[in-house]
């Protein structure tokens, strides 16, 4: 069982029989008062989102999910299709069930598909993914301050903050666990 101290973004719990993923987490507490744990949870079977606040002392059942190595093939109208290269079995996961993870899927990427009662309910991505910048404001000459940043959009439509020297056409590495820029890839 998990206690409140174990709660964090990315943890998977069983609530009312269904596996749930913590997609946002915040610890909060009046200075002299009791700790409260605010969770935004996603039902991993139907994608529904809701918020719950827990108090210290509560406990949680971990979601035991089967993980299988699979390759991402393509997207069709029913969702994202993955294949087990050992037996060619295919699994399809709908976009609202995948959440933001769908932005980081690249053709032929090796991922771990999470299965609950043989149903695909999510993926574990590689920690880093390389994606090409398709939209970013141009670099202003003379802007050499290392800390300046600007928004950029990468292939697939994901938008994030990048350093000012990153330009359209650059390949960048993104940390899939935080969704943040990590480094520029030299080609």
């Amino acid at each position: 069982m998990y206690s409140c101290a174990d709660l964090k973004k990315g943890l998977k719990l069983i609530i009312d029989g269904d596996p749930h993923l913590i997609v946002q987490f915040d610890f909060t507490k009046p200075g002299k008062g009791q700790a409260l744990y605010k969770c935004k949870l996603r039902n991993m079977l139907n994608g529904s989102l809701f918020e719950r606040t827990y108090r210290s002392g509560e406990s949680f059942e971990p979601a035991q999910l089967e993980e299988r190595d699979m390759q991402y093939l393509y997207k069709d109208e029913s969702g994202y299709v993955f294949m087990d290269q050992k037996n060619y079995e295919q699994v399809t996961i709908a976009e609202d069930v995948l959440g933001d993870d769908h932005y980081f899927l690249v053709d032929n990427m090796q991922v771990k598909v999470l299965l609950f009662n043989e149903r695909g309910i999510g993926v574990t991505l590689p920690n880093f993914v390389n994606l090409r910048v398709v939209q970013a404001d141009p670099w202003v000459k003379g802007d050499t301050a290392a800390g300046n940043n600007k928004p950029a959009t990468v292939e697939g439509g994901y938008t994030l903050q990048v350093p000012s020297f990153v330009e359209e056409g650059d390949l960048i590495q993104i940390d899939t666990r935080t969704g943040e820029y990590y480094t520029r890839v030299k080609e």
Binding site: A146, G147, N148, N149, P163, E180, Y181, T183, R184
Partner: peptide, 10 residues
Amino acid sequence: ERNWQLARKQ
């Protein structure tokens, strides 16, 4: 590359 997460806090 420089630690950008740190540099942007300056």
